[in-house]
Write a protein that binds this DNA or RNA. Structure first.
Lengths: 195, 195
DNA sequence: ATATTTTCGAAACAGTTGGTTCAAAAAGGT
DNA sequence: ACCTTTTTGAACCAACTGTTTCGAAAATAT
């Protein structure tokens, strides 16, 4: 799993640390607002090494999105359970969403729903990636809905997009500076409203 | 109301047309992704005139956000009625949201929830503006909820943020390329699930 | 005509952008 | 010791960034 080069000058940076740092820079500043120069410093990674490893800024960003999905979104989807009544699991899920979007004030909201989404306006590659990430979360929600024995007022796939929309809307509101406890109350109300 | 200069060389551009064009450029490309050069061409407005009229890029963008709110968001809030049962008004509202976010494929989603929201990550001025715009829509929704005689399961201010979150989530999904009819179905389901 | 007022066009500004190049450095393998 | 492999730093690149400046242009008022 871990790549272990036997020869050559040893790498002066840590790959995971670098991705984590790049994630925060993009998250805070946006895609166009994050110059390579700044990324290099934050990642503790020389320019040449960055380009050798990631190719260009686009692919670095896509790697960051992937890292973000693995470290932030997968645990979040896992919080859906099932580990109790649907309403409780949804409440826990929204709670985690709010926590993610408000935890660090310097990286408010969601990297995907704010940064990738903005960049998807003109870049078809980013647009496709955004669609994939969105679909992925909706699939997880739909699966959880189907595992419930409650009667749903609409097809699970449709209701899943409703719930995903609430979650994304919460992260947008977090980026505007809304306090976490207010957003948690909104999440609770949403979990209750959508059975 | 209309400014009518009596003397001097006549202006070669139309002020409203210019704002409309700038709106589309920012909407599609994002704040950092829209160079002054491109804006000038689209607005049919010389650089010097742009800087004389708007000061700098930040203030131009804020003027664009204001124009967008007046031309796109106010009509949208107006569609809330009340002109029927709450459920029907909400369905109409979500329908208008989807229409706005999908009407022109070259400007997908919402200028505020994608472009301004991304730019609000580091710019405190933009963050404050985003908060104002978000609060404004939520106030409108809360007022509509209070005018309903139905029993709500939570305070109107909280439910208003839930509904606003759904609306914003819909615009994000539109920016990822989701077809309008799918999003309309999601809007209907949200309005129905919402008692 | 002349003066006045406003807009325009183009050039110039310094700083930054994403990206490439390449030789030196630093390690292991033989 | 010498070769091989990988990483690194620094210089370099052309293109672009937001912004300022200023004289010419084009209209009205006198």
């Amino acid at each position: 799993m871990l790549e272990q080069p036997k020869r050559g000058r040893p790498r002066g940076y840590d790959v995971t640390d670098a991705l984590e740092a790049a994630t925060c820079v993009f998250w805070a500043n946006g895609y166009d607002g994050a110059p390579i120069d700044v990324l290099c410093r934050a990642m503790n990674m020389p320019r040449a090494s960055l380009y050798q490893r990631f190719g260009d800024k686009q692919r670095l960003f896509l790697a960051v999105v992937d890292y973000y999905a693995k470290t932030r979104l997968e645990p979040l989807a896992h919080s859906l359970g099932p580990s109790g009544p649907l309403k409780d699991d949804l409440e826990a899920f929204f709670g985690q969403v709010v926590a993610l979007a408000t935890h660090d004030p310097s990286t408010p909201g969601c990297l995907i729903s704010s940064v990738l989404c903005d960049a998807a306006g003109t870049n078809p590659l980013f647009k496709a990636e955004l669609d994939r990430r969105y679909t992925s979360l909706e699939n997880g929600l739909a699966e959880r809905l189907r595992q419930s024995d409650e009667v749903l007022g609409a097809p699970a796939e449709v209701l899943a997009v409703v719930l995903a929309s609430v979650a994304r809307g919460l992260t947008l509101r977090a980026r505007s500076g809304a306090p976490a406890d207010e957003l948690r109350a909104v999440g609770r109300a949403a979990a209750r409203a959508f059975h």
